[in-house]
Design a protein around this nucleic acid. Sequence first.
RNA 1: GGGCGCGUAGCUCAAUUGGCAGAGCAACUGACUCUUAAUCAGUAGGUUGAAGGUUCGAUUCCUUCCGCGCUCACCA
Length: 501
Amino acid sequence: MSLEDDLLRQRAKRTRQIEALGFRPYGHRFDATHALPEVLSSYPAKTGDELAAEKIPVKIAGRVMTVRRMGKASFAHLQQNGGRLQVYVRQDAVAEADWKLWEHVDIGDIIGADGFVFRTRTGELSVHVEKLYFLSKTLLTMPEKFHGLEDVETRYRQRYLDLIASPESRQVFITRAKIISSLRRQLEAKGFVEVETPMLQAIYGGAAARPFETHHNTLDMDLFLRIAPELYLKRLVVGGLERVYEINRNFRNEGVSTHHNPEFTMLEFYQAYADYEVLMDFSAELLGQTALDATGSKVVEYDGTQLDFGNVRRYTMREAIVEFWEGDGKPTPENVADPEWLLRHSHKLTAGEALTDIFERVAEDKLIQPTIIYKYPVETSPLSKNSVDDPAFTDRFEIYAAGMEIGNAYTELNDPQEQRRRFEMQLGMRERGDDEAHQMDEDYIRALSYGMPPTAGEGIGIDRLTMLLTGSKSIRDVILFPLLRAEGEIGLAAKLRELDK
RNA sequence: GGGCGCGUAGCUCAAUUGGCAGAGCAACUGACUCUUAAUCAGUAGGUUGAAGGUUCGAUUCCUUCCGCGCUCACCA
């Protein structure tokens, strides 16, 4: 007999004892007067004497996190909504059945209480319990109270347990929600309309990535999970939704790392009649305000460095290579504009690909402070519009911080002939074995052929932005249920079946 | 996919050169009416991730597998 079986058996017995006392082990609706954080924040200025005189009644609920039993009196901490409030239960202050119930309460159970607010001798705001309710029984033990849940695998697999045991983990996801809500608020304020476009797509596109494949049975149709919503959102701009955005999941069938999860959340937005310079200004504003809304400051600490989202630097890709080059042979601005120099410093086949390659090697991981890099070579930007002053480049920028790419934006290509040529170029790359090259999307060409207003569009990686604003080193720490390999047999159902006999 | 590392009680962690698998928390029994990592006395709890191998003897050494982490490559 293992310990876990033993604990389960004890808890199952407790459940029956609680029933025998006339309580329901899994209770129903409970109308509290206060959530625990509200109790904690409502009376901080009141002294013990004032509270004793007023005897403020409250009805509260929460999960039992600690219990200190001293014979005929006990203290316990209840947890709810990230707050912990101490309750004081003494035998002579509650009914006999309530006291017996209290003796059967385990750490991890969810209970309710009527009582009044008071201060203990040490000054801690607490609730003096006068009546107890039982709301839910735990059959499994909580993580250790002092160290909490340290095992990262368990934290990812059993996020519910992590959220109970780790206030900092809870806070990450609260901040994530604030980030998304701030972005929505700002976009709405500028007249952007939120839409939802297909995640199941017969033709995928909008990014360079390998897709997940799936199949619809009754239509007998192969489908892909989208790698980006981009081409659908631009169809909507053609249709006259001149400012649209979508916040939702993309799926890319590629590597998993601390910066990559196979499903991840992107904000994409498109603004008709704008260009990438408009979006550069807007991005800087958007990031600063989001940081402020989510963390209370435009300056946040990440990995020991203060990142200032109130001051987003800007370099062209060429400038960034010159600026961040380390060691001998530092190039001049003329060098990085010289195709021969570029091809000498990269194994890539074209000057544009070489420039991107050199940029990634020289500058990318040095872009710690929030930075916009603009003017990307046309070869690596199949959906961006060429720069008027230099057709070898596109009006595109990316946003970097902490060495990570967090955003990508450009003036959209709206010439259907040019888009057709780019797709055909991509098809050529596909035939040469590039399985990340774009498919031909003829309906998208058709949409552009009806005329799309000049438009600028941008994508921001919500998971990575959340990493930056919460100080998280791994993308798995900002995704509630990151993709993991399948867990082995858990075996709990069999144990519960045994107890049910 | 490559390299490195980790996996011991429900949780957090020990275990000397290969020599009887341990502690704290949680649990159980008892004492205790202002404690807060409550305290005190006692009890119980282990397929050391799995399977093989070497050995008189394996948590420890070797092989394979499973899971996780870090890192490189690819990607956002």
